[in-house]
Design a protein around this nucleic acid. Structure first.
Length: 267
DNA sequence: ATGGTCGACGCTCGA
């Protein structure tokens, strides 16, 4: 079985190419981020016509996440317990950054972690709060069910290692590489005894970049970042037999600025 | 040639 994660940067602008890619690449389930459309504007027909069921939550021009599956889509959850909100015009908003479903026995999350914007921006503190809350609820769930088949997939907006960005000095005093963000991700991982004990399952197979800015000729110069990945529970990680970043999908005319990451899962 | 991007609720913002 193949599960993918892809920040598509608008689903309405490229629903046909996303569905065509899924069919060509034999993708069974995809976690989509930044769909950037209202719930009633989701291009559902493109997916249904190719045999994919879809769960989605939108927020107009920004954010929005979805899961498309041809192997079942059950027990959909929007957001997670304790998910932090962000104040917009004095109102606390639960942004459309997390959706989950059980597909072929796997509890898959599609996550769009807040960008952070700048180290002194309120969105940066929000990002750290958001990651901490997600880690807490994940650790609780896995403590209750250590054999859970769990995949947290998405755009994490954190480059964990120095080699996950093309030029570390470019990111000095900017989000994505700061120690608090990296520490927040490490606390999800098996290597941190206190956390839920997940594994960055693509890393052994696909350690390359997943995102290249549209500007500054970043893609032709291969000046990218590895910020899209999936953290898997121990029981699921043992089933991951391979992964790849499809750079060809980033090359295409009208492509998203992120490439999809594909996981091969043994039965 | 010292620039060079997109998508959306587009005369501006977020990535």
């Amino acid at each position: 079985m193949r599960i993918a994660t892809w920040n598509v940067n608008s689903i309405r602008a490229r629903s046909e190419s996303v569905v065509a890619w899924m069919t060509e690449q034999d993708i069974d389930v995809v976690a989509l981020q930044e769909i950037k459309c209202h719930n009633d504007a989701f291009p559902l027909m493109s997916f249904l016509a190719s045999g994919y069921d879809v769960a989605h939550v939108g927020q107009g021009a920004y954010n929005g996440v979805a899961i498309a599956s041809r192997v079942g889509l059950e027990d959909v959850e929007i957001g997670f317990e304790g998910m932090p909100t962000f104040p917009v015009d004095g109102q606390e908003v639960a942004e459309a950054r997390a959706i989950s479903a059980r597909c072929a026995g796997i509890r898959l999350w599609s996550l769009y972690v807040p960008n952070g914007r700048a180290l002194d921006d309120p969105h940066y503190a929000y990002k750290l709060r958001w990651l901490d809350a997600l880690r807490d609820i994940t650790a609780l769930g896995l403590a209750h069910d250590p054999a859970a088949q769990l995949m947290l997939a998405g755009d994490w907006n954190v480059a964990q290692r120095d080699e996950d960005v093309w030029d570390l000095s470019f990111f000095e005093n900017r989000p994505h590489v700061s120690e608090p963000e990296r520490s927040a991700i490490r606390r999800f991982l098996r290597t941190d005894g206190a956390g839920p004990g997940l594994t960055d399952s693509a890393l052994p197979y696909a350690p390359g970049y997943t995102y290249w800015d549209y500007t500054q000729l970043r893609f032709p110069r291969d000046e990218g970042m590895r910020i899209d990945y999936a953290l898997c529970s121990p029981a699921l990680d043992t089933r991951v037999t391979g992964a790849f970043v499809d750079r060809d999908a980033r090359k295409a005319k009208g492509a998203s600025d992120h490439a999809p990451v594909v996981f091969e899962i043994a039965d």
